[in-house]
Amino acid sequence: MSEDQHAADETTDDDVPAGPLRRGWTTGSCAAAAAKAACSALVGHGFPDPVEIPLPRGGRAAFALATTALSGDTASVGIVKDAGDDPDVTHGALVVATLRRGAPGSGLRFAAGPGVGTVTRPGLALAPGEPAINPVPRAMIRAALAEVHDAPDDLVVEIAIPGGEQLAERTLNGRLGILGGLSVLGTTGIVIPYSCSSWIHSIHRGIDVARATGLTHVAGSTGSTSEAAVKALYGLPDEALLEMGDFVGGMLKYLKAHPVPRVTIAGGIGKMAKLGQGLLDLHSKRGSVDLAFLARLATAHGGDPALAAAITTANTAAEAFSLAGRRDIDLGAAIAEAAHVTAAKVVTGAGIALDVLVFDRDGALVGRSSG
């Protein structure tokens, strides 16, 4: 995923198209460019098209204007977001900056227009009540406005993303307490296709919100089935659910530095088997299920050599699990205990009570660690 908006549905590297991938621009870049062009028109210099802005880490970017409007002390510019080859939910969205002169001495103020959310919970980089225009995009807007000759000191900058409230339903904003629309994001201004950074960033922010709201139990899940199952099992609120995906290591390392009293890891048989093997990135391209490892687990829990041989030649972890079940070997519990050992090493010394749950494809609990 990119550093900008990502969908709540799990996306894996298997979905990445072949060949070189085209980079794109974050909503923060589009907002900064639109704000600069609107400011230029507001002070009588017209709408520059294309409009150039500086990027946070050096370099510049140019954007074509999609819409313009000027009326009295208000100017508006819209720029179409191009996320390159990333499956960003905001690709093709219109990012609109509307600028109007503020009261003398009021300085530069930000406002959320239609489709941009508002922060409602503590724990994020912005205080509750603030428009969800993140700190780096705010700095980008300030830097872009500074390049406009005669730009006024007192301005209200409203950022809107028409249709953003509907798009936000496909992101984790609601879970983080960002209501009413999307966030204006981006730390570099550039969207790197299929980057993992935004996914891990959202996990971290979810932990921050959970801690700030006083939650004592969070659950990281590998997918929607295990998430629904662990939510039902423990009666957890949505804000306690972390969409961990394959990034169990990224979640646990952040939790060690920012602990929550109780942490549950929930996932399917194959993913939890890989965690039991010692993998902290559960994606298929980082490693596959070791059937010989599962055979050893089955043997350690009472399985005979014939079962071990059958598991070693199984097609999948699910088939290995089924073979063990026919012999009354609780392979699910064995997988959960092995996964617990791997995870516990990461958070050693953090004072976290950890447990691991293994669910089958139907969301039935088939393994649980004693931790």
Score class of each variant (00 low, 15 high):
Ala151Asn: 08
Gly174Ile: 07
Pro162Tyr: 01
Gly123Phe: 08
Ile159Asp: 11
Leu167Ile: 06
Gly177Trp: 07
Ile161Pro: 08
Ala125Leu: 14
Val156Ala: 02
Ala127Phe: 04
Glu169Gln: 08
Leu124Gly: 10
Gly181Ser: 11
Gly123Thr: 08
Thr171Leu: 01
Arg170Val: 05
Pro122Phe: 12
Gly180Phe: 07
Gly115Lys: 07
Ala146Thr: 06
Val119Lys: 01
Val119Trp: 03
Leu155Arg: 02
Ala146Glu: 04
Ala111Glu: 15
Gly163Ile: 14
Leu172Ser: 10
Asp153Leu: 08
Thr120Asn: 12
Ala160Val: 00
Pro114Arg: 14
Glu130Gly: 11
Ala112Gln: 12
Leu179Cys: 05
Leu182Asn: 04
Glu165Gly: 02
Ala146Ile: 05
Ala160Lys: 02
Gly113Asn: 10
Asp153Ser: 12
Pro137Met: 04
Leu182Trp: 00
Leu145Ser: 11
Arg175Thr: 13
Leu126Thr: 14
Leu126Gly: 15
Leu179Gly: 03
Ala146Tyr: 07
Glu130Phe: 11
Ala139Arg: 14
Pro152Ser: 10
Ile141Glu: 13
Ala111Phe: 08
Gly180Glu: 10
Ser183Gln: 00
Gln166Cys: 08
Leu185Met: 04
Glu169Asn: 06
Arg138Ile: 13
Arg175Gln: 13
Leu182Ala: 05
Ala143Val: 03
Ala125Phe: 15
Glu147Phe: 03
Ala125Lys: 15
Asn173Thr: 13
Gly164Trp: 06
Glu169Ala: 06
Gln166Met: 09
Phe110Met: 09
Ala125Gln: 14
Gly177Ala: 15
Ile141Gln: 15
Phe110Val: 07
Gly164Phe: 01
Arg175Leu: 11
Pro137Asn: 05
Arg121Met: 07
Asn134Ile: 07
Leu155Pro: 08
Val156Asn: 03
Asp154Glu: 03
Arg175Met: 11
Leu145His: 07
Ala127Ile: 06
